[in-house]
Design a protein around this nucleic acid. Structure first.
Lengths: 188, 188
DNA sequence: CGCTAGGTAAACCGATCTGTCTATCTTGAG
DNA sequence: CTCAAGATAGACAGATCGGTTTACCTAGCG
């Protein structure tokens, strides 16, 4: 059977390249060269480029949400403070070298059709992030955790667009300030 | 000299196709076929595909901001209410057939490098939209119009991501509600 | 030893990409 | 009428695309 580490090599490289150069903008030949793998190996693990794209998006979702949760929970154990800490996580992310926006927003941009598998995974990713916020809002004792999570997530998305399109890496700090009235109203 | 209407035909078709299928995802051959124009004509008006992309983005910026201003000002003449009316404009836009997100967010996704001309035009577009909001905030008598415009624009961007990636076309109505505390604080 | 599974390198396929060029047609102005 | 400008269709070039195939290599194992 195919070695799992080869598969990981491919997905890891594809992750970098798709993130920085887009999906249509990255050819299979580039991926195999960078990953140091033959084309046959790639196509023994993935039937098509589309399948590779889906696999990278799934991995990115897993890595990103793990980071979000780990960093948020590392910063504070107070559930109320965690609702604000997600914005500090964003600030750190925006300043990372190679930051290139949200890979799922980027994927939705290239795969416009809502029924396209990559677009659906992107929507699901956003839903899962919002779910995590909702859990924290519940722990914090919010009156309507789902509503608060929606509000905070909308602020996060706005900050991401600001940071990426306009290059304003301090947008997350502004979004954090903007979050205040909504958290307060829910936890009054 | 080249007829200006031919040029317009090309840009108009390119606008549709780039918006719905992306920039890398739309070939020059498709554009000329759909526009009913020969390849030579296209390349007599634009030196490269990149130049055509820039021309379509400039036109989109012009059309979009004209729409935003016209629709916002048509809805109400009260400057304070106009700050909320921009969200109603968004709701209408989200429900348009063929809505495919913000073309400038999509462009930034495909042209990741901040120095890329298309990325720069996208950043400029967002800045110009925010400028318009700031003008309205000034007219409404905001204490810090620039800050309020930044807050409202961030809410708008968040709503756009929600509407496009997650398919939640009512996000603008939620963003409108979220705008309330910021407008009130500035106009107290 | 010899077989097999998984790998490599690279040729190859047909399609598509951006961009150029040739040859022809139409049209409006002097 | 004549001629030049602007358009057409479409062949063409060279690169790149996603994907298949061939031929060879290597390591583990009976």
């Amino acid at each position: 059977m195919p070695s799992p580490s080869k598969r990981d090599q491919i997905v890891d490289k594809a992750l970098q390249l798709f993130y920085r150069q887009g999906f249509n903008g990255t050819g299979v030949d580039t991926i195999i060269t960078e990953a140091g793998v033959s084309k046959k190996t790639l196509y023994s693990h993935f039937r098509t480029k589309d399948e590779l794209i889906l696999a990278t998006l799934r991995k990115r979702d897993e890595l990103f949400r793990n980071n979000l949760m780990r960093e948020t929970e590392r910063r504070t154990s107070d559930p109320r403070e965690r609702l604000f800490a997600v914005f500090d996580f964003l600030t750190g992310w925006f300043h990372e070298e190679g930051f290139s926006g949200c890979m799922f927003i980027n994927a939705a941009a290239e795969f416009a059709e809502p029924s396209h598998p990559s677009h659906k995974i992107s929507a699901e990713h956003k839903r899962l992030v919002e779910d995590y916020i909702r859990q924290q809002a519940e722990l914090a004792g919010a009156k309507d955790p789902a509503a608060l999570a929606g509000e905070l997530n909308l602020l996060m998305e706005g900050a991401i667009v600001y940071a990426y399109v306009m290059g304003d890496k301090e947008a997350a700090a502004r979004a954090k300030q903007m979050a205040r009235p909504f958290v307060e109203r829910q936890l009054a």
